[in-house]
Every structure is written in C-alpha cells, then in structure tokens.
Amino acid sequence: TEYKLVVVGAGGVGKSALTIQLIQNHFVDEYDPTIEDSYRKQVVIDGETCLLDILDTAGQEEYSAMRDQYMRTGEGFLCVFAINNTKSFEDIHQYREQIKRVKDSDDVPMVLVGNKCDLAARTVESRQAQDLARSYGIPYIETSAKTRQGVEDAFYTLVREIRQH
C-alpha cells in the first residue's frame, strides 16, 4: 500500500529536517529553504509493509500558489509548527483551512506536530497545542528532528489516521 503524505507549515519550522531524519536517519543542521522535494521510503507499520511517498513543501509565502496542487494529491498532512515560534503555531489554522477548502472536506487525515521540542526556549505550551488538536479532532505529537524523538511516531500516526479514514 502506498501513502501520499504531505508536510506543511511555516518556513523554518523543520519540515525538511523531520523528513530527512525519518528517511535518512540524520539531522540536517543548516537551513536551506525548500521549494519542493519528495522522498520515498518502505516501512512496516503495524505489520503492514507500506511505501511512504512524502512531499516536503515550501513554507515560504512566495510558493503558496503551489499549495493547491499538492493538497489535492496528498492523502494525509503533517501540519508542523516549531514550539519556539508562536507565529508558526498561529499559521497552522490557515494551512488547515486551505487543506479543507482544496479537499472540499472537513475530515482530512492530519496530525499536528510541534517540532524542536529539544529546545528550552518554548513559547507554545503543550497544552495550547493539545487544545488546538482536540478542537480539530486530530492527534498532537511533539518531535525533535535533532534527537529523533517522536519522528517515526508522527509519520506513522498519520498513516494510521489515513487507514482509519
């Protein structure tokens, strides 16, 4: 089974770092803004072998026109913010609204991801993020692309959301 996953969120929150940590098991430290990259990885989730087709997208506003296209083809979405960047957390709402509009559905598989949880300088409390996820009816997972904490959990949870859909 193949799953088309799309990673969305503001610029600099760590979308590529999360994806590369999942696929290649290493942490990319330097920031190089993405336009669009796709990665494929075969994994076993709950005993089922599946192929993850992951689209890593641009957070930069100037590429926002490309969003409709990949939102149409994606089956599930990782909505990523950084726990030390309140603005990126506030941006999640717009991504969710755009996904709902493009998919013409209120019920699209999504996982809210709070990345950079290895950093002490948190400005978005776990509780705020949990409340937001609960209001959307989606899971919330904290990750660190640096330490790998929660990385597999985030992507695998999204696959489970798609399966249950």
Rank of each mutant, 00 (worst) to 15 (best):
N85I: 06
P139A: 10
D68K: 07
Y140G: 07
E90F: 01
M110S: 03
R67L: 11
V108T: 03
T1W: 06
S88Q: 05
Y140C: 11
A58S: 15
Q130C: 04
A121Q: 11
I162D: 10
E161Y: 03
Y136M: 06
R96N: 00
F77S: 01
L51W: 05
R127I: 14
K116T: 15
G150V: 15
V159H: 10
H165S: 09
C79V: 08
V28F: 11
L119K: 12
T123F: 05
K4R: 04
K116E: 15
T19A: 12
E125R: 08
A133P: 03
T57W: 10
K15V: 00
T57Q: 11
A10I: 06
L78T: 04
L78K: 01
A82E: 11
G150H: 07
M110R: 01
L55I: 11
C50T: 07
V8A: 02
T34W: 00
Q60M: 15
S88P: 01
F155E: 00
E142G: 12
K15D: 00
T123H: 08
G59C: 13
A145I: 11
K41R: 06
E2W: 02
D32V: 12
Q128A: 11
A145S: 15
Q69N: 03
L22S: 15
Y31E: 12
E36M: 04
D68Y: 05
V80L: 04
I162W: 07
I141Q: 06
L5Y: 00
S16D: 00
R96T: 00
L55E: 15
M110L: 03
Q164F: 12
E2Q: 05
D104T: 05
V7W: 10
G76I: 13
S16K: 02
L5I: 01
K146N: 15
V80Y: 05
D118K: 12
T49Q: 09
D153Q: 01
C50H: 09
E142Y: 05
A65H: 08
G114S: 11
T34E: 00
G9M: 07
K87T: 05
A82F: 02
R67G: 14
Q42K: 04
Y31W: 02
V111N: 09
V113G: 07
L119S: 15
E30C: 11
R122Y: 15
Q130M: 01
N25T: 12
S105P: 03
E48N: 04
K15Q: 01
T57Y: 12
T57C: 08
K100I: 01
E30L: 06
D68W: 02
K15I: 00
G47T: 06
A120Y: 10
H93V: 08
Q69V: 03
L112V: 12
G76L: 12
L78M: 10
E61D: 07
Q128E: 13
T73P: 11
T34S: 01
V28T: 08
E161L: 11
L119T: 15
F81L: 03
T143Y: 12
K87M: 02
C117G: 10
D46G: 08
K103Q: 08
V28K: 02
D91C: 11
V151P: 14
A129H: 08
A145E: 13
Q21I: 13
S126Q: 12
A129L: 10
I54A: 10
T34A: 01
P139E: 11
C79K: 02
V44M: 00
V151G: 15
V43G: 06
Y156C: 14
D53S: 01
G59E: 03
E125M: 12
M66C: 09
Y140T: 03
Q69L: 06
G76Y: 10
V151H: 13
T49W: 01
Q42V: 02
G47P: 08
Q164Y: 14
I141E: 04
D153I: 12
S88C: 10
D68R: 07
V43I: 08
I23N: 15
D29V: 04
V8E: 00
R160H: 12
T19P: 06
D91I: 08
G11D: 14
I23Q: 12
G74E: 09
D104C: 05
D68V: 00
V8H: 06
K146M: 14
Q98G: 03
A82I: 00
R40W: 03
P33H: 06
C50Q: 07
Y156R: 14
E48V: 04
G59L: 08
N115I: 10
E75G: 02
S126E: 09
S38N: 02
V44F: 00
G74T: 08
Y70W: 04
A65M: 02
I54C: 06
V159F: 14
F81A: 06
T19L: 07
V108P: 08
T57E: 09
D91F: 05
S38E: 06
D118F: 11
Y156L: 13
D104W: 03
L5P: 01
M66H: 11
A65G: 09
H93C: 12
C79D: 01
T123A: 09
L18H: 05
Q60I: 15
G150Y: 11
G76P: 01
R134V: 14
A129Q: 10
D56W: 05
I20G: 02
R148G: 07
D131Y: 09
R67K: 09
E30T: 08
V43M: 01
